[in-house]
Structure formats: structure tokens, C-alpha cells
């Protein structure tokens, strides 16, 4: 009795800094965010406006546009990075010459600091100097030579998605590969005895074994990409996903609308929670 009380006191001393920081800088801000979403926040004053901020956002065409861009961006990048990650993981699960160097190469996009790779991508898609327009436009004549893929509201979203897949597929690859390596070889042997060809082995053994890791990775990538700000913003400000929508209303403006931004963030959070709940129930079957 005496000892367990002592132990509990000691434990609390150890976790105190963590808990204080979490309460102060995660929990409180989240609640405070919901609170200010009901106010018209000025520089010095706060006026209660009830659901006015929400009404304004939900009737704002730009918001809905941004919302659907965010959803499609998330879907596209999650599916894209899972497909690419799966293919690469399947290839890397075989033994071949140069596998070690390939391992390091594959991880490069994911580990290199974002700020280092972003300008190289800018350069590739630059309309006047970029090798992309140079090759596909001037050499092959497939696209118009004065196309600006990065700063055009209609195209930016595609380039940003491609960039996001390029950058994040190594994460998916790592998760899938570690699961692939733990699939017992007896399963494949049994399938072979039953006369399964390579494709049947893949669909009947590999995929079911990978189901949960793919679902879990999809969830993680989905959450991260839904909230993704820096990769999108640094790649192109015209991509117009919701995090950028919020940022432009608070930081990138001379008359910040904190109330409106807080309301969007709250909506984002609620949508995310509903989606996660649905996903966990239906896909992960918890």
C-alpha cells in the first residue's frame, strides 16, 4: 500500500511536464478553437455571433470548392501512394543485385527535408526554364509551351498530388514491406500445392495478409494528407485545399478573420472524426 502510493506519486512527477504541456497546448487550444468559432474576433474585441461564422462558411462557394479539392486530394494521394508503395514493396521483397542501394534510393524522397526537394520540383515545372515543359512541350509537342502547371488553379492540384505521392510512397512501402517479410512461406507453399499461379497467390495469399496493414496505412496517410499544409502550400499556393484556405484567412491577410478560420478548423475536425469513425468501423472492422 505504502509502496504503491509512493510509486504513483513518482510516476505523476515524471509525467507532469508532458501532461501540463498536452493540456495547455493541445487540449486547451482545441476547446478554445471551438469557443472562438462562435465569435467575431477583432484585434481587441470579441463579439458573440452564435452560428453566424458557420452560416457564412457553409454558404460560401469557395469553401465548398476547397472542401472538394481537399477530399479529392486526400483520396488521390492515399490511393496513389498505396498503389506505388505496394508495387515497390513487392519488387523489393525479391532478391536481386543492387538491392541495398535501391533501398536507400527509395527512402530518399521521404527523408530529405521538404524544403530541399520543393524548389527542385518548382524548377522542373517552371514554364520558362523547366525541363518538363521543355521536353513535353517543345520537344514532343504534347502540351502547350506556355502552360504554367504550378500557378494555375486548375492544374496546381494535380502537380501537388503527384508531388505528395512521390514524397510519401516510401512510408507506405516500408510498412507493407515489413508485413510482406513476415508472411509465413508455408502459405505460399500450400497455395502452390493447390496449383495456384503467381497471380492467384498474390490475390489469395498476399493481399488478404496485407489487408490490415494497407488499411492502417490508408488511415494514417488519410489523416495526414487531409490536414497537410506545408507540402501543399510550398508546392503551390494555388492548390486551394482547406488548410491553405484557413492559412490565407489568418496569416496571409491584413485583416485576419479568426472566427471564420476557427469555424473552418472545427468543421475540418468534425468531418475528420466522422470519417475516422466510419473507416475504423467499416474498413478496419474494430
Amino acid at each position: 500500500m505504502e509502496l504503491s502510493v509512493k510509486e504513483e506519486r513518482f510516476a505523476w512527477k515524471l509525467v507532469a511536464p508532458t501532461i501540463i504541456l498536452l493540456l495547455l497546448l493541445i487540449l486547451y487550444p482545441v476547446i478554445y478553437n471551438i469557443y472562438i468559432s462562435f465569435f467575431d474576433v477583432g484585434i481587441t474585441s470579441m463579439k458573440f455571433v452564435g452560428l453566424e461564422n458557420y452560416k457564412r462558411i457553409l454558404s460560401d462557394k469557395d469553401f465548398w470548392r476547397s472542401f472538394f479539392i481537399t477530399i479529392s486530394f486526400t483520396l488521390l494521394t492515399v490511393v496513389g501512394s498505396i498503389l506505388l508503395g505496394l508495387i515497390v514493396a513487392l519488387m523489393m521483397n525479391k532478391d536481386f543485385k543492387g538491392r541495398r542501394i535501391m533501398r536507400t534510393i527509395i527512402l530518399l524522397p521521404y527523408i530529405t527535408p521538404l524544403i530541399s526537394v520543393v524548389f527542385s520540383w518548382h524548377y522542373i515545372f517552371d514554364p520558362s526554364l523547366g525541363p518538363f515543359v521543355e521536353f513535353f512541350g517543345r520537344k514532343l509537342g504534347l502540351i502547350s509551351t506556355d502552360i504554367d502547371l504550378l500557378n494555375n488553379i486548375n492544374n496546381a492540384f494535380i502537380v501537388v498530388s503527384v508531388f505528395n505521392i512521390w514524397r510519401n510512397f516510401p512510408f507506405v512501402y516500408l510498412m507493407i514491406l515489413s508485413k510482406l517479410q513476415s508472411i509465413p512461406s508455408e502459405l505460399y507453399e500450400a497455395a502452390e500445392i493447390d496449383g495456384a499461379n503467381a497471380w492467384r497467390k498474390f490475390t489469395n495469399v498476399t493481399l488478404p495478409e496485407l489487408y490490415f496493414v494497407i488499411a492502417a496505412v490508408g488511415l494514417l496517410r488519410g489523416i495526414w494528407n487531409f490536414y497537410k499544409f506545408d507540402e501543399v502550400y510550398l508546392m503551390s499556393k494555388s492548390a486551394g485545399t482547406l488548410p491553405i484556405f484557413i492559412y490565407e484567412r489568418v496569416i496571409g491577410t491584413t485583416s485576419p478573420e479568426f472566427g471564420v478560420a476557427a469555424a473552418i478548423a472545427t468543421i475540418l475536425m468534425v468531418v475528420m472524426m466522422v470519417l475516422i469513425g466510419f473507416y475504423v468501423k467499416k474498413v478496419l472492422k474494430w
Partner: peptide, 26 residues
Amino acid sequence: KGMLQRSVLVVYLFGGTVIMVPLYQM
């Protein structure tokens, strides 16, 4: 203890975008 361990998951849910506005406002 369980609560604290689960806080990791919670932080996953609140990406930087959601707490940026209140942290700045604070």
C-alpha cells in the same frame, strides 16, 4: 496511464492546421 497513452492518437487527429488558429490567438 491509459489516457496518456491514447493521447498519441489524439494528437494524430489534431493536425497543426486545427490548433494553429487558437495557438496564434493565445
